[in-house]
């Protein structure tokens, strides 16, 4: 009955193998077996979202799932944010946004908010306010009234967009596309796009003007 199961999780890019009882919750495995206490336990009932982590890129509540069910999956926690390429040498734009826009007071909900925000921006780099509010609807904050959290995520979206433009937003070298490359892989003729495809999200018309008379072939 109290048998242990060996499970392997790739947490923030590092493979970790631990032994857990089948009744062990994922959040307890993360906090107590892996000693990563950035992921919080708020309500213990699946309501508050403080324990939100990304499992294979999708936000889930880690108090609502057994650790054995995450065996073999990739988990991202708040500790992994600063190691993301977008973070540069310091904070990830989402973390920076919460700092600059006062997206927290007590900070208890913040790890979960960051994970939900990350999942949103991965899918939708240019969300409107309603989309942001929907994405964080499973995360409760009792301090901010949410407005500053929305602003924080908007800040991050803009910052990430600027980064993409600065990193890869250059005139594409092949003349097949419309000449603009937003820098996102597999989008509008970015570096790995085998077939140039139209830029899908957040395309700014000003770039079309800039690139129309450009030097691309």
């Amino acid at each position: 009955m109290t048998d242990q199961r060996e499970i392997t999780l790739t947490v923030n890019g590092t493979e970790r193998t631990i032994e857990v009882e089948p009744r062990r919750l994922l959040v307890h495995a993360i906090r107590e077996d892996l000693d990563m206490t950035g992921t919080h336990i708020g309500c213990d009932t699946g309501n508050c979202g403080a324990c939100t982590v990304l499992r294979d890129g999708e936000p889930i509540k880690s108090c609502m799932m057994f650790a054995t069910q995450a065996d073999g999956s990739e988990i991202m926690t708040v500790e992994g944010m600063e190691d993301l390429p977008a973070a540069g040498e310091d904070l990830h734009p989402l973390q920076e946004g919460f700092h600059k826009e006062h997206g927290l007071q007590c900070g208890y909900c913040t790890p979960g908010m960051l994970m939900s925000g990350k999942a949103l921006l991965d899918e939708n780099p240019d969300p409107d306010e309603a989309e942001i509010r929907d994405a964080i609807s499973g995360n409760l904050c009792r301090c901010t009234g949410y407005q500053n959290i929305v602003s924080s995520i908007e800040y991050a979206a803009e910052k990430l967009d600027e980064q993409a433009a600065a990193d890869g937003g250059v005139v594409a070298e092949d003349g097949d596309s419309d000449g603009f490359d937003c820098g996102v892989e597999n989008c509008c003729g970015g570096p790995s796009a085998e077939t140039p495809t139209p830029h899908v999200e957040g395309a700014d018309p000003q770039f079309d003007d800039v690139t129309e008379g450009s030097e691309s072939e």
Binding site: P59, I60, K61, M64, M65, S116, D134
Partner: peptide, 12 residues
């Protein structure tokens, strides 16, 4: 579907 619980719950 979008009225069921919240995004995290709907993923599971």
């Amino acid at each position: 579907a979008p009225l069921v619980a919240d995004p995290q719950i709907r993923n599971r």
